[in-house]
Design a protein around this nucleic acid. Structure first.
Lengths: 350, 350
DNA sequence: TTGTAGGCGTTATCAG
DNA sequence: CTGATAACGCCTACAA
């Protein structure tokens, strides 16, 4: 990271350096042709060691930095990859984007982030903008576009998507096992002795929300606990809806001793709702979330949850893209869901 | 947003469209020269209405989208602006970045996000990368680089920074009144009858952390409350440090009835620390944070805090950049700090 | 008003 | 192995 800076190098840095140093200037100074400089800098061909040194020296001395725009125009590769996220200000996507950054940076690629806000039309627009910017590939986190639209896009560019099961020559996907996650959360509650377990569902359009619910129902069935639709309240994956859901449950009067919220944000809202209703977590009601947001372990009380590795999701998606770009077949896989038991569902830990 | 799509327009969209449509093709189809097309599309000159129509039609029909790379190479403007954030996965920066997105998008500019992780060297690298990518301007959120380094950079490019007071021909800054924020938070606690108010400080390197502390001390002095250094514990602006700070305070044995944490993340950690120590918020200890993160109102109990408009911070910074780019002198100002009293510091609200 | 020519900084394709 | 010579797609004088 920290190469000793040769005294000859006026490394532009965040300082002066007015004129732009071009490849031609390097070529001239090194006494070779521009093409040779290009070849050396890109390792496109074998070059004599002598010229090689001369070019490297000149590059250093002049502080030459290739112009990505020109590179993109001429060569077709821009070394930037488009990343479509749904909300850059969501804790979940934030972690994922950081994973993307961390994976792309060392490879010399720059991410180009765009938010689609769960709107298919906006998502399509993102793809268009990204393609017009000539990105080398596109990663879509939790797309809302149809499989076919994504597949169509993959005909033109390497694509990696998460939250789907799509494969193709230029298409790779990474999916999380939401079903088993939902099942594990519910089984944990059942193991703790709970029989009346409420469920705060996620937005209908989210396929993963449906999977989590399926896991919930599966676990209930396995335990021979009758499914009571009245204990299932809708949510929208954000705090307010969790708060409202909890209040609905309380007001409804139907007894319940535990809540499984299909994501941490709603669990957080539900915790507040219970608190405001005078119910203690976990003494009166046990609570389990889903995602394991960075803040969940610092909630009061710390929230039990299913760990969904958002950071790794982003990182692996980016790695897969790098593989695709290198012409390889990606093999990255997401880790299996893991249950994190914390105080919110375990009275012994309080 | 939703123009009726003319039947003649095969709007590439997220679909097929193999070949790239160039400006020359549009020119040919419209029966004019490339330069005319360029002029019309950029409004660079006055053109006859007839040709104008012809070009617009051809553009539509062909679904032409100008290549930003070529545009950047030839004209110098890339319509992308670099945005240096410290951590893309922080709730505070997340909100700010969303503000940036929202302001830039309608103006036709794309943000290029990079994270510096509070490391000056990394920040310098971000600036270099961004400049090498030929962005039209750079916005730095809460820079760690020296004023002079930023000013130097502003000689080359329009710059907008937050958390500093810097002005220049190509440089604009947006600063938040951390001193008064800290003061208001403390005064609130004092008004609630508290005399022993602990303070969880922020990282030393953050200038805003020092300002908040100054506000704390100022308010104490105003109220003739002796400043007790033992009630000030260091923090790092993240949850763990708040948790540890609270435990330190409790173990220390010195009585205190309130805590002012210099940011919400630490306040959240402190809340957990108090909880684990068997202390109730606000009955035993009142708690006030700083920032008003989106999640703070859903904390258990909801956290009183000083509202720092992160979203607006980003939005206004981006707007200022747009002004700079348009050759105007920005005039955006950040709103004054506001105190939000919630249950964590008000027993009546619980 | 509008067309022509040249160039922005690289890479790629050919010869040599 | 290396050097010309085209593009890449668009913008901007300059000339008409």
């Amino acid at each position: 990271m920290k190469n000793a800076t040769p005294t000859t190098a006026p490394n532009a840095s965040a300082s002066s350096e007015r004129v732009t140093v071009t490849l031609d200037m390097v070529a001239k100074r090194a006494g070779v042709s521009p093409s040779t400089v290009s070849r050396i800098l890109n390792g496109t061909a074998v070059v004599s060691e002598a010229k090689r040194q001369a070019v490297m020296d000149a590059t250093q001395a002049l502080g030459f930095v290739p112009n990505p725009l020109a590179r993109g125009l001429a060569g077709g590769k821009t070394f930037s990859i488009g990343v479509v996220t749904q909300a850059i200000d969501s804790p979940f996507y934030g972690a994922a984007l950081r994973g993307v950054e961390d994976a792309l940076d060392p490879a010399g690629y720059s991410p180009l982030f765009m938010s689609a806000h769960w709107d298919p039309a906006a998502e399509a627009r993102c793809l268009d903008v990204l393609r017009s910017r000539r990105v080398d590939g596109i990663v879509v986190l939790m797309p809302r576009l149809s499989d076919s639209a994504l597949e169509a896009c993959a005909q033109t560019l390497p694509m990696v998507v998460t939250g789907r099961d799509l494969r193709g020559p230029q298409l790779y996907s990474l999916n999380f096992d939401n079903f088993n996650g939902g099942r594990m959360a519910t089984e944990h509650l059942i193991a703790q002795g709970h029989r009346q377990i409420a469920f705060i569902a996620g937005a209908d359009e989210h396929p993963d929300a449906a999977e989590r619910m399926r896991g919930y129902r599966y676990a209930l069935a396995e335990a021979k606990i009758a499914f009571d639709p009245r204990l299932v309240v809708p949510g929208q994956y954000h705090e307010v809806s969790g708060l409202e859901a909890a209040k609905t449950l309380v007001q409804q009067g139907l007894p319940f001793t535990a809540i499984f919220a299909s994501n941490d944000q709603m669990a957080s809202g539900a915790a507040l709702g219970l608190f405001q209703s005078g119910l203690r977590v976990p003494q009166d009601v046990a609570l389990v979330g889903f995602d394991d947001l960075p803040t969940s372990m610092y909630a009061t009380p710390p929230l039990s949850t299913i760990q969904q590795p958002a950071y790794d999701l982003g990182r692996l998606a980016a790695c897969a893209m790098l593989e695709l770009l290198a012409g390889n077949t990606p093999t990255e896989e997401l880790p299996a869901p893991a249950l994190l038991v914390r105080a919110s569902s375990d009275s012994l830990r309080v």
